[in-house]
Simulated assay, not measured.
Amino acid sequence: MDFELTAEQEALKDAVRALLKRSYDFDLVKRTLDGDQGWRTDVWQALRDMGVLGLTVGEEYGGAGAGPVEVAVVMGEIGRLHIPEPVLSCAFVPAEVIARAGDHRQKETYLSAIAAGSSLGALAHEEEGDRWPHRRVATTARPTADGYALSGAKALVRHGDCADFLIVSARCDGELALFVVDVSAEGVTRTPYRSHDGRRGAHVTFADAAAERLAAGDAAEVLRYAEVLEQVALCAEAVGAMDEALRMTTEYLTVRRQFGVPLSSFQALKHRAADLYVLVELARSLTLYATSVLEEGIADVVVASRAKLQVCRAARALGHEAIHLHGGIGVTDEHPIGHYASRLMSIEQTLGGADDHLAALASAVDEYETITVG
């Protein structure tokens, strides 16, 4: 198992970092998150032109045909620079679901649109009252003359407020299935929300909304793969964010002076910074391992959960310590460290927090199966 990036992957990382640095500074990120949309269309188009949106889409549908390692590379840079564009929610995850669940026509329609940046998707799977890893899926679908009609509600659809289509899990004749729903269809109602880190989403209700069924034979397997991919990608984003937060914190300790000397001269503060470095490196190692396993075609939910557990622990500790070591300025809205801590806390609570993953690993719940994807 090789944990080193290839020359092409290094070039991708450098190109994405350069693009995002040109596009944003901290003040512009803040203004963008405070805006109506929460991200910039021009940056989305630039990412499209670079091929990022179609990174995992097959070449026959206009993409690059890349894999989980490239996804992790991009997400690491997004986390490092605190970028708000919904690349994971609206491009990577829906593209993987369509690629694994759709027939050729559906792939041609939706994957080509995702790669071209002309259509944004979002996965709508969670429902009110769900707690990871358990999903009850009470939404239902019934056959009609023209397709299917969907009824029910989905909660916490990440970036569902800006998606053009939703991939919805529902039960049809008692069987779990996946459906594509145009958000402009009659019977679809979206209630947007804003999370504490400035990201967006929507609660969505369906009242006999027209839907198209994806051709997947095993929707549960597709959903498990999508969740593992999202977990690993979020871990990569968190590691990038922690890298930058730790860099800012150690830099602050070298320039902030107290009693006439830099804060970095105090041994206790050095030890605290060293402890944070160890936590970040542990999170990085487990994230690299989970990414490598996924790259080999194995969607191992146990490996992903172990990585997420370590990321959750590191993210919370680093967020708290970074704010504390910055002192009073760390709790102001004008300094980036609090924004990084907020994003890390949001990632920690997405698809299960530390307690959830620890309990799931300890009890070996039924959802924890090793799925080999051919």
Rank of each mutant, 00 (worst) to 15 (best):
A226G: 10
T350M: 13
Y193R: 09
A317I: 08
D49F: 02
T56Y: 00
G319N: 02
I371V: 09
A314T: 03
K154F: 09
E296H: 06
A141L: 04
E186K: 15
S265P: 02
D208A: 15
E108Q: 09
R284C: 01
H104M: 14
G65K: 09
S118I: 12
E126R: 12
A362C: 14
L55A: 06
E128V: 13
F165T: 04
R343L: 12
D103R: 10
L246S: 04
L361T: 10
E70Q: 12
D355E: 15
G374I: 06
V93G: 03
E186G: 14
Y148T: 00
Q9L: 03
L47R: 02
R224C: 04
L81S: 00
L12P: 01
T189F: 01
R224Y: 00
E237P: 00
Y289D: 12
A209Y: 11
D300V: 07
S264C: 15
A211I: 03
D27P: 05
A149V: 00
S305R: 09
A315K: 03
A215S: 14
T250V: 15
V183A: 04
W132N: 08
A307H: 05
Q45G: 11
S292D: 13
S119A: 14
L81F: 09
D208T: 12
C90H: 02
A236D: 00
D27Y: 11
I298T: 15
I323K: 13
A226C: 09
G129E: 07
V280Q: 10
K30T: 14
I347K: 04
K154P: 08
L282I: 15
E348W: 07
H125D: 07
A116P: 15
M248V: 02
V239E: 06
A236K: 06
M248S: 07
G297P: 01
D14N: 10
F26R: 11
A211D: 04
R343I: 04
G38I: 04
A322F: 10
H271W: 15
V204H: 02
A145W: 11
E4N: 08
G117C: 01
G201S: 10
D356H: 11
A66I: 06
V183N: 05
P336V: 12
F3A: 12
L47G: 03
V302S: 11
A170E: 04
G102I: 01
H357Q: 13
W44P: 01
I83R: 06
P68R: 02
A274S: 12
V157K: 00
V373W: 07
K13M: 05
S292T: 08
I83C: 07
P84T: 02
L33G: 04
P336F: 11
E8A: 14
D333H: 13
R31E: 13
T109S: 08
A124Q: 03
S305Q: 12
R284T: 00
Y368L: 15
E221G: 05
A207F: 04
R200V: 05
T56P: 05
G117M: 00
E321V: 08
A113E: 02
E85S: 12
A177V: 01
I347G: 03
L253Y: 07
A7M: 13
H339I: 04
G374H: 12
C312A: 11
L282K: 13
F266T: 02
A153I: 09
I98S: 01
T144H: 07
V180L: 06
A185R: 03
L294Q: 06
L309D: 09
